[in-house]
Computed example of a mutant assay.
Amino acid sequence: MQTIIIAAGIMAAQGAAAPAPPPPPVAKKAVRAAPVQPEKGVLPSSDPAAQHAMAQRYALGEGVAQDYRRAAYWYRRASAQGYAASQYYLGLLCQYGMGTAQDFAEAARWYRLAALQGHSGAQINLGLLYLNGTGVPLDTREALKWVRLAAAQGDAQALYMLGLLYRDGKGVEADRVQAFKWLSLAAMLASDAADRGNATQARNALAGRLSASEKREAERLVQEWHPLAQQRFALVK
């Protein structure tokens, strides 16, 4: 599925996990008082998947002029029916003020609804909001909880963020072995070359601080956690 904004933007951070970066430089649509009306000649659909597809067309400018305000309208309709992907994207629009008023608390609300349905991107972004106290109370343990849930699905961004949290002792006691493990897994599972490079760089920087026995233990944990790790570990050595 295409995305309009990178899920959490954490792979570029080389220090402690940071809030998501601003969206790409696209023109924002002004939020107007008049409500959005359904398109002429288009029968309103009650199917949330169809509503989400319509929202994606406007968000991405596929076959129509890009219009985040109309995207938000259709995302809201699908979100009201519990469609997790729309709840996640609506959270993004609320977080960045694209097509709707910027509202971090509202973003957190939609992220939470999607996160409770297992949407890993929403789990990461909700974790970042808690980590930075944006729209929700600052709570590193709550941040860790949501990042763990996304990491359990093999999400490379969550694995990377979890590695940073263990490295820096945020929400959890600092643990170099655990940090090395999660950063190694992030490097293995990242599909994007830049993301993979960032995770590998962070992992290698940490490697110099590990004793030989700590490194062996970390490598054992990597192989234990991921079935393919034993075959792929050489890729990030």
Rank of each mutant, 00 (worst) to 15 (best):
E62P: 03
E62R: 13
E62C: 00
G63R: 00
G63Q: 02
G63S: 00
G63K: 11
A65V: 09
A65Y: 01
Q66T: 05
Q66M: 14
D67Y: 10
Y68S: 12
Y68E: 10
R69K: 01
R69F: 02
R69C: 03
R70L: 03
A71W: 05
A71H: 00
Y73K: 04
W74E: 09
W74M: 07
Y75I: 01
Y75T: 04
R76G: 10
R76Y: 08
R76E: 14
R77G: 08
A78F: 12
A78Q: 05
S79L: 10
A80P: 00
A80D: 15
Q81M: 04
G82D: 11
Y83F: 15
Y83S: 02
Y83A: 01
A84R: 01
A84F: 09
A84P: 04
A85I: 11
S86V: 11
S86K: 12
Q87N: 11
Q87K: 04
Q87P: 03
Y88Q: 12
Y88R: 12
Y89T: 06
Y89K: 09
Y89H: 13
Y89W: 13
L90I: 10
G91D: 03
G91K: 03
G91S: 09
G91I: 04
L92C: 01
L93A: 00
L93E: 07
L93K: 13
C94M: 02
Q95G: 05
Q95R: 14
Y96T: 04
Y96L: 03
G97H: 08
G97L: 14
G99T: 07
G99K: 07
T100H: 03
T100Y: 01
A101Y: 07
A101F: 08
Q102F: 14
Q102E: 15
D103W: 02
F104D: 13
E106T: 03
E106C: 00
E106S: 11
E106N: 13
E106H: 04
E106W: 06
A107G: 13
A107P: 12
A108V: 08
A108L: 06
A108S: 11
A108C: 13
W110Q: 07
Y111H: 08
Y111E: 02
R112C: 12
L113F: 12
A114L: 07
A114W: 03
A114H: 06
A115F: 09
L116R: 13
Q117C: 01
Q117P: 11
Q117D: 08
Q117G: 06
G118S: 10
G118P: 00
H119N: 13
H119I: 07
H119A: 04
H119F: 15
S120K: 09
S120L: 03
S120V: 08
A122T: 04
A122C: 05
A122R: 06
Q123G: 03
Q123R: 03
Q123P: 01
I124T: 10
I124Y: 01
L126E: 08
L126G: 02
L126Q: 12
L126K: 07
L126V: 08
G127T: 10
L128K: 11
L128Y: 02
